[in-house]
Design a protein around this nucleic acid. Structure first.
Lengths: 114, 114
DNA sequence: ATCAACAGTTCCGAATTTCTGAACTACGGA
DNA sequence: TCCGTAGTTCAGAAATTCGGAACTGTTGAT
């Protein structure tokens, strides 16, 4: 398996972020990761929504999220730990992630600063 | 020509907005409209960026923006007047449009509230 | 009224992208 | 070593996007 690619923070492009999160399934995965604290795995959410997502599709969703710069993935034994890059992202694109998750009605409690 | 469809504010979906603005060309058009005050026409920006956008593509970009709820288009004589729905949108999705335009580095001065 | 010019839309085929089942790789445990 | 689990890659089918050419609707001129 070739090593996982993660863009440097300065190479992250807003169009890639918007594209990645324009798929409700991916947005739900991202929101779930943002709320899960840390280390959400792939198989943990095979049926996050109403349908069962095929694992090849799930793998692809994670790849899109990773390569757009939204998450960081790291192999840990047999499974893959994923975490968001929210802190970095908020520095580069202030308010963006929060506004998007809020628009989806999926802002996790710990990201709420009201 | 069939009448132009504009979604009601409550039918606007965040995924459609993100999708529409995930195309840098469309985002530039939208930013330009947001800054143009009001009434930007289609042909006025055949070459907004470095390349000349074919008019069928331009027409399609406007359709995507319109049907996602980002802009309102109205025929005025022979041409089409377009304006953003920023005010409505900001009520429905607080901070979203601003954060996106800022991320693209295209927040027009009049939307700046710092 | 007819015609020409212009702004934009629609149509449709080519190219690109997305989706997902099946085969495959990687790791850990017995 | 062999098995099970987690996830990736491959490849073909389906869906989407792109853009040139033809078309529609409006205005202004003759």
């Amino acid at each position: 398996m070739r090593p996982l690619f993660h863009p440097a923070i300065e190479d992250i492009r807003p169009d890639a972020i918007l594209y990645a999160l324009s798929d409700p399934e991916r947005a739900a995965i991202f929101a779930w990761l943002a709320g899960a604290g840390c280390g959400g795995t792939c198989s943990a959410l095979a049926d996050l929504g109403e349908r069962t997502i095929p694992k090849s599709s799930l793998s692809n969703h994670f790849k899109v999220l990773r390569e757009s710069g939204l998450i960081r993935s790291e192999r840990q034994g047999v499974e893959m730990r994923n975490q968001t890059r929210c802190a970095e992202l908020d520095e580069r694109f202030p308010g963006l992630i929060r506004a998007i998750l809020t628009a989806y009605g999926q802002l996790p409690p710990e990201m709420n600063t009201d």
